[in-house]
Design a protein around this nucleic acid. Structure first.
Lengths: 342, 342
DNA sequence: ACCTTCTGATTAAAAGTTTGTTCATCTAAT
DNA sequence: ATTAGATGAACAAACTTTTAATCAGAAGGT
């Protein structure tokens, strides 16, 4: 069996409580005792038991991270490892562990989260996605359990600490780029309308068009799961319109890659025939052909800030709800160019 | 404060120990009592405290999963979410949690793992990578802590439970495909030679060449981090040889995508000028241009099996070391074609 | 009717910490 | 010299559960 606080206490000739206070760096322990105890700890290779600690002071040192359902391919998006990297950085620094939760079905995911909070496995939770009418979010809200969401919550925005980009503004900005390049027929391709992020980016696209007095057309909007057969058909229809778009705003880099390939399959070139801009600036965006003009949303920073917020909240239950907007930048590359140029 | 076992006991008019035994479905509890207690648990919304449980029977119900260092971009490989999906499936089914560990630096990673095992945070660990001379592996071995590795361990193979593909055979098979297509000059591009998987695939490539009496040349082998500038140069040199390759065996789909783009930048077409085969069959392999002929290694299954093995081992310390070889299949797509055909 | 055996539940100890309270000692002030 | 106050460490309770040992009562055998 592992060495416990009692063993250390005995070895150092003090009481267990004293050892505990040495660990906590309590001011009422004399420097001499501290040194003595620390020496014993080191010699015996003592490490506190996390369970006992958690039990005694009703806290685990761990954060739950909820990934979206693994049923769809969304999980394969490099967004997640990158945001995890950010979370992990602060977790490691502050000695927190990361408990992962996901599931195939929505049902399974809710179960996972409930298990985490009911069993006291985590001190707080980070939601890595945000959709309308989310039962998990409702659950956490109802239980008054500390959590933060990455993205903008679908409801009760002011009560929920969240870390997001200004997706409306970035949508507008990137659409404007296409407009400045002379494009007049600009379509939008995004994922499920249940995702807030899609909605916001679409809204930005709309604002830019309206401001430029360009048409905001129903048939110029496609919402599709990432490249399912249905999505294929939708894109083909888009380009069979009497006035097909010359510019595409696509809500995600990975979708862009799929769309580009579809287009080139049917003989259309990017950017010569159609310009494409998108979002996220994942690693692949830079090495794909053509390299994508895309909004860099600073994924790592999103994770980093979210973890910091959550830990603040965990350590001080009264911490008010915050909104943190991580600034975006635009990476101008080759997927969008002046209209008509070959 | 949450409802405890005592509250339930009081409500049901029994002793706490009885409630505990009801949870464990102990045979010495009468059906009547069981029903009564279960009713009380349900009504009060009782959920056992994981910390207390863990403390009492020295086990957490959780598995540690170690990702490779997040410093390089490897983490962005869709391999990881997919393998996590497999692990998660069995974890969820058997009521285990998943504790994630990663870090920027190697140092940081070791610390993370040590924290997990010293603090008794996990019952066992899955290593999602395998490299030569891994301090983490050594640590686990030395502590005799239950773990399994996905991939083939660099040393003491027989003592370590691992789940792997037969990478030598798959390397040979896929190289043979290129040979059958008439290619005589076949090069190999892989990642770091510290990774066992790279070594094995290279070995398979070598075997195929030797068997076909084709040249196995030093200058036909490139080992490079995924698309760093150094890698770029190496690939250019490869095609400036007096006899440049017409076929490429690339150790990873994502690398293939990068290489294809580099080649087309310099005016070479895939598969018309050079054929490419690679490994993993990540989602992107299917939608990229051209779609990749690649070895499907069944990533999900790797994770699934690894988790099962680990739980077996956790539940029975004497479980012998196993090797599980997940079969591969080959996806024939358009990135490799008969030599000379246009 | 008494003893044995079995059944089903209770009691109490244990797991490894933290933390509020108490106690002993030492210093300094009267 | 006595006492008040400060300092430093020990004691003991608490956190929630599991489990070995124990006990009470019923059933069965003689």
């Amino acid at each position: 069996m592992a060495v416990t606080i009692k063993d250390v206490a005995k070895a150092a000739g003090v009481a267990p409580s004293t050892v505990s206070r040495v660990i906590a760096d309590h001011p009422r322990i004399s420097p001499a005792t501290k040194k003595k105890v620390k020496k014993a700890m080191k010699e015996m290779g003592y490490h506190p038991n996390a369970n006992a600690r958690g039990l005694a002071n009703r806290s685990t040192q761990s954060l739950g991270v909820v990934l979206p359902s693994s049923a769809n391919k969304a999980l394969q998006n490099p967004f997640f490892p990158e945001v995890l990297r950010g979370i992990s950085a602060v977790a490691h620094q502050l000695d927190y562990s990361i408990l992962l939760s996901t599931g195939e079905k929505d049902e399974e995911m809710l179960e996972g989260v409930q298990r985490m909070v009911y069993a006291n496995r985590v001190d707080g939770i980070i939601l890595l996605y945000s959709q309308v009418n989310d039962p998990i979010l409702c659950f956490l809200l109802e239980k008054d359990f500390p959590f933060v969401v990455i993205g903008k919550p679908g409801e009760r925005v002011d009560e929920i600490t969240h870390v997001d980009n200004d997706n409306i503004r970035s949508g507008k900005t990137i659409t404007n780029h296409l407009i400045e390049l002379g494009h007049k027929n600009i379509a939008f391709i995004g994922g499920s309308t249940d995702l807030i992020v899609t909605l916001d980016r679409l809204r930005g696209y709309q604002l830019a068009l309206e401001e430029a007095k360009l048409p905001y057309l129903e048939e110029y909007r496609i919402h599709t799961e990432f490249l399912k057969s249905g999505g294929r058909r939708a894109v083909h229809e888009l380009f069979n319109l009497s006035e097909p778009p010359t510019g595409l705003v696509i809500a995600d880099d990975l979708m862009s890659i799929g769309v580009i390939n579809m287009l080139e399959e049917s003989g259309m070139l990017v950017p010569e025939d159609v310009s494409i801009v998108s979002f996220n600036n994942v690693y692949l965006a830079e090495v794909t052909r053509p390299p994508l003009t895309t909004v860099d949303i600073h994924i790592y920073e999103l994770g980093f800030q979210a973890a910091k917020c959550l830990i603040d909240k965990v350590q001080n239950k009264l911490e008010p709800a915050k909104r943190i907007i991580v600034p975006f930048t635009i990476e101008y590359r080759q997927s969008a160019q002046m209209i008509g140029k070959r």
